[in-house]
Nucleic acid binder design. Structure first.
Lengths: 192, 192
DNA sequence: CGGACGTACCTAAATGCTTTAGGTTTTTGC
DNA sequence: GCAAAAACCTAAAGCATTTAGGTACGTCCG
């Protein structure tokens, strides 16, 4: 029988595809092995256990997302960049629901400190520097942005945003407007 | 042997406690049966399957959260009510991590349309009516608020908000300030 | 060119969870 | 006091995770 010649990366990539295609819950080592034409136990040479597999998908998704965001926000600033940033998140979640679910799972400290995670954080910071935010508030703004974007997509994914009027798309635009306004108006230190 | 005299509600309540105590992942019918001093198969008289059990915890949590929020925002308005609303969410997530995780899971259409879900939505709407928001934007504001609060807590839970400076608490306050500002400033229809 | 070594993959097996099927006992309602 | 309903049981099939130990393929070095 032809040998599959797997690597850790190949196994994780296959896991990501499986999760996107059949749903995150069906991401089992058995199903993965079946799809790869390999015995389940063989996968343990490439991946420590199921948790490590999921963490691998998480990290893969972080990198892919960072790549897309770098492309999307390049050359833009202000509201344009914000829209590109958020829409790229949304499109990624739509196109790769399994990977996106993996992104929502708790990550190890190593992953949080990993290169793709840092890159994504750096890109977000860079984009927010297009707004007149005091340096001390940049991290707050980063956290608010990440919370809002991910929270919105999570609400959508878990059905909390019903398909009633108004359309989800309108609320998305409204939320981005709100964030844009907040970030834009934060330089006025003294309130009237 | 004394009979446990379980009901569907009792099983779900025990599941919620188990999930809070030992983590959501250990919420298995086996562990639950063990804790209740009952055979695993017996639980299937009260709960259709594992997914239904989780959905039950989800619905239970919705009701509990709605109760707490009703208490917290009663008599308050504006920024006070907003803070109470958000902090109640945060405290609930802290105190009942298992139930809170259940809340993040996809829910069936029946749960989305359930009484506690409607109550929570109504409470949120009522609170936002304390702001000068046009009627047409109330739903947008509701969604933004839910997305931000849940997104922030999710970020915290999954480790994305590292324990570096500035403190998470400061970012939380900053985010609430931002939301308050947005909701407060939305009555100015024509931009200058 | 040929063996040695590492790696990819295998079989086998233990453990544990989910779920269905069907039987027994307790409670409840008339 | 009896019949029906509800609560609980045993048994068993099916699948997933994980460990242990073995076989075959490629590659590197003498």
């Amino acid at each position: 029988m032809a040998r599959a010649n797997l690597t850790s990366a190949a196994v994780i990539a296959a896991a990501a595809e499986l999760a996107d295609r059949d749903g995150f819950d069906t991401l089992t080592l058995s199903a993965l092995a079946r799809g790869l034409g390999v015995q389940t136990a063989s996968l343990y040479s490439h991946v420590r256990d199921r948790a490590a597999l999921i963490e691998g998908v998480h990290r893969l998704a972080l990198g892919e997302l960072a790549d897309r965001i770098a492309l999307a926000i390049g050359g833009r600033s202000g509201r344009d960049a914000l829209t590109a940033f958020a829409d790229t998140h949304r499109d990624y979640a739509r196109q790769f629901p399994g990977r996106w679910t993996a992104l929502q799972r708790p990550a190890s400290a190593a992953t949080v400190r990993s290169e793709p995670a840092g890159r994504l954080a750096a890109l977000t910071l860079a984009m927010l520097r297009g707004y007149p935010l005091p340096e001390t508030e940049l991290v707050h703004a980063t956290r608010l942005l990440a919370a809002t974007v991910n929270g919105f997509l999570a609400l959508q994914a878990n059905g909390s945003i019903t398909h009633r009027q108004p359309a989800t798309e309108d609320s998305w635009q409204w939320a981005l407007d709100a964030l844009d306004t907040v970030f834009r108006s934060r330089d006025t230190e003294g309130k009237p």
